[in-house]
Amino acid sequence: MNVLEKYSVNCGVKIGRPAPASSYFPLRDDKYIVLDGRNKYPTNIYEMFSDVLGYIKESLERENIKIYSFHADEKTILLDTQPFINLTKKQEAYLIKNSMLVVSCDNLSTYYASAFDVPSLGLYSAYPAACTSPLWGKEHVSIESNRAGNLPSYGMEETPKAINFINPEDVANIILEKLRIDTRVDIETIYIGDHYPIKVVEVVPDFIPATNFLQGKAINLRADYHFHEERIVHWLQGRTVNLLIKNPINLNLLKYFNKNIVQLTVNINDTFSEEYLRQVIEGGTPLEIFCEDKERLADVRFQLFDFNIEESIFKSKKDLDESLNKFNKNTQFLSGKILISEGQKYSCLEAKKQKNVLTGYPEVVYDTSDFWKELDHYRLFNNI
């Protein structure tokens, strides 16, 4: 039962049609859609609108249709859109009333659109669409996450976020259909890593950066890919770093840059002593230890009984689970991370090894163990 219907039954009143007030807002475009990714609950915020825009951008440009987007702050602004921040609700209502389509994450904009008989698309996860979708108008379409077979969480936090299980191509195709554009996105997503929506910058310390390069930014410094203490020092200056190592690093260096190192992540092996790890903690550096070798995990935990030893942070091909049945030699991927090495950008370590620089376009999967280690950061898909 829809929440509004429940209120109606409990209060003994009929459901009326709302008439939202709007306030004039100057428009420079005749044709546009509204994209609203805001929601007061983090579980209801869809984090893959950038992928959706990648699929629809050219088609909308050909039709001279612009993309307006509503945002809570500047941090969430989407590229290739006309962003609006801190509009009044009446101004938002005016933009929605004059739009061709509204796409939103189960929020007020969907209700405005339905009240104005504007076509709308709502994305649902934490609550079933049947409970919270608008009852007015006939132009609303709902996409509900499959939640990996689980029931709705009805909560404010989820790990991973089930709304991100909605495939970007499904959202894109409904947008194109609603706008009566013949183009279709002919792909099928077969896997979305838990960390794919989170954009991550990783750096291999195999070159010395310019002083202002990534200054003030948070990065993963992959000293486990290339260990060079002198160059590591350059990267620790003026940046916030999660430092990953598989070789012991100078303790004085850790103490000196303590404020810049948010975490030291250790891929544990026989080169690390218990005393060394104790000194890292005593020096005030946050420490996380994991064991890549699953067969040695129990022994390492016994040897380092006083430390918390996590399982490997790396994945393998078998972690595709049921999606492995759909994987083939033509499967492509996009990465949620950027790996910077020797001044060049790559999608992953295997791309770096094969010297395939990042283009922003999908790449054919590199079927190697190093590639699959970063599975959590990929979206895999097939052409259909």
Rank of each mutant, 00 (worst) to 15 (best):
Tyr41Arg: 03
Val203Ala: 11
Leu135Gly: 01
Lys353Val: 06
Tyr366Arg: 11
Ile56Pro: 13
Ser114Gly: 03
Phe333His: 12
Val357Tyr: 03
Leu27Lys: 11
Lys329Ile: 15
Asn220Thr: 06
Leu251Ser: 06
Gln344Lys: 14
Lys138Met: 03
Ile85Gly: 13
Ser69Lys: 04
Leu349Trp: 15
Tyr127Asn: 12
Asn250Arg: 10
Pro152Trp: 05
Cys131Asp: 14
Asp370Asn: 08
Phe49Gly: 04
Phe213Arg: 05
Ile181Ala: 07
Ile338Met: 09
Lys90Pro: 01
Ser341Arg: 02
Ile338Tyr: 02
Asn10Met: 15
Asn252Ile: 01
Val200Arg: 15
Phe49Arg: 06
Val364His: 05
Thr159Leu: 13
Cys291Lys: 10
Leu244Thr: 10
Asn330Asp: 15
Lys352Gln: 14
Arg301Asn: 12
Asn2Val: 06
Ile143Asp: 03
Asp367Glu: 10
Ser104Leu: 01
Leu264Arg: 02
Asp206Tyr: 14
Glu363Trp: 01
Phe84Met: 11
Pro168His: 10
Glu363Met: 15
Gly12Cys: 14
Thr88Ser: 15
Pro20Asn: 04
Ser109Asp: 07
Ala126Pro: 02
Gln82Trp: 03
Thr211Gly: 00
Arg379Leu: 11
Thr183Trp: 05
Ile33Arg: 00
Ile33Gly: 02
Cys291Trp: 14
Ser22Ala: 12
Asn86Ala: 14
Lys97Thr: 02
Ile163Gln: 02
Lys57Pro: 00
Glu139Pro: 00
Ile249Pro: 12
Leu254Gly: 00
Tyr111His: 15
Glu74Lys: 15
Lys353Cys: 00
Glu92His: 01
Lys57Ala: 00
Asn107Pro: 04
Cys291Phe: 12
Tyr46Lys: 11
Glu92Asn: 04
Asp299Asn: 14
Phe381Glu: 02
Ile245Asp: 08
Tyr366Pro: 03
Gly283Val: 07
Pro248Lys: 05
Met48His: 07
Asp306Gly: 01
Tyr154Trp: 13
Gly122Leu: 02
Ala126Asp: 02
Phe272Ser: 03
Ser109Leu: 02
Leu101Asp: 08
